[in-house]
Design a protein around this nucleic acid. Structure first.
Lengths: 199, 199
DNA sequence: ATAAACTTACCAACCGGATGGTTATACTAT
DNA sequence: ATAGTATAACCATCCGGTTGGTAAGTTTAT
């Protein structure tokens, strides 16, 4: 009954495809590129993922999981100032940008720009992932409000959204300028903005 | 006479190509697409712009001119609060996003994401245009500092950069969510941040 | 237990269409 | 006459996707 499938190969394909799409965009990567990088034959790739869209959707889900873990790893409740969490989130982005020589940026942000307007299925997934990020960060800020770190004079979700906008926008400019200083500036603004609500 | 006509055709091509690239991205538009939309033959298009890259560079310069005008139209020195200028800049973006049903976004931002990492010539042009934008907005903020609207406790250029990051990031998320509320939130943050420096 | 039947994994060769780009040739205004 | 403009036809390459077939692993019937 249970049809055993080669999950290891599927995951290998997703991992390779994610990296390529991350580097060169969805339209910049062909199925042949993926097959070669994954060291399988193209027809075999089509055996696992019958269309390029199917692969893209699978890659996005695969990347989403990792991304959600990354998000939550910076939203751990502790006795430290909540500003530390935000600060560390920005630092993590700055570090990964430096490691890639400002080439990669944000996987979700990249696809949002390229595909929001091209494939509705992926657009919805991207939108949901942004919503998840906003919600998780919003919940964290709300928690810190109830714990008395912040005044109740700001809306946690709007604030979360705005911090994420700032991060994504600074990533975009950093990519164009090939300089992470922009992200550093964004971090300072986010912290300084949040400080105005700190008790 | 012939030279004038020549320029008219070139400009027509640039205008058409800009619109297509704006809507579908550089990689999403073929030379054939441009030729058909401009109602000329493909070989004729190649006569005017010998490579796709040459066309892209020309389109970018063409769009840059319009973009710079747009920038400066919101940085007019007046007796009003400088917050009005920023507010109107965001409103203009919100309006144009609504008009395009959240499809277009920012021409520079779109290309920055797609091409920063693909074509170094264009990346430099994009980087310069961002720098121009930051500098113009920075100069405006600096002027308002010397006019006594702001404390001298912030760096005009960093602040300008951060406002632009916020705008670009919120545009990205608005595009994915197909909802301009994100830009509205970003505007409120930018204004509320600037208010902390208002005298 | 084992052979047949079925499912999954793999692969070389191929297909139609699109792409960026070219060539050869003709028209047209000075 | 000739330089600039226009156009049809063409080309090599790449793209997403298919075909037809083999090998390997599982399930089922005897």
């Amino acid at each position: 009954m249970t049809k055993k499938q080669n999950l290891a190969v599927r995951e290998h394909i997703l991992s390779v495809a994610q990296q390529l799409i991350y580097e060169q965009g969805f339209k910049g990567v062909s199925m042949e590129n993926v097959a070669v990088a994954a060291k399988i034959k193209k027809a075999n790739l089509f055996h696992y993922y019958p269309t390029k869209e199917a692969l893209a959707l699978a890659v996005f889900d695969y990347a989403s999981d990792g991304f959600k873990q990354w998000i939550n790893s910076y939203l751990i409740d502790s006795s430290d100032s909540p500003l530390n969490n935000i600060s560390q989130m920005f630092d993590s982005v700055i570090l990964s940008m430096q490691e890639s020589h400002c080439k990669l940026g944000c996987f979700v942000g990249n696809l949002a720009q390229e595909l929001s307007n091209y494939n509705e299925n992926i657009r919805i997934k991207i939108s949901n992932l942004f919503s998840y990020w906003i919600e998780q960060l919003g919940n964290f800020l709300a928690l810190k409000q109830t714990q008395g770190h912040f005044h109740t004079s700001f809306n946690p979700n709007s604030t979360a959204e705005v911090i994420i906008s700032l991060l994504e926008g600074s990533l975009l400019i950093a990519k164009a300028k090939k300089d992470t200083q922009t992200i550093e500036n964004a971090k300072q603004m986010a912290l300084s903005y949040l400080k105005t609500f700190i008790i």
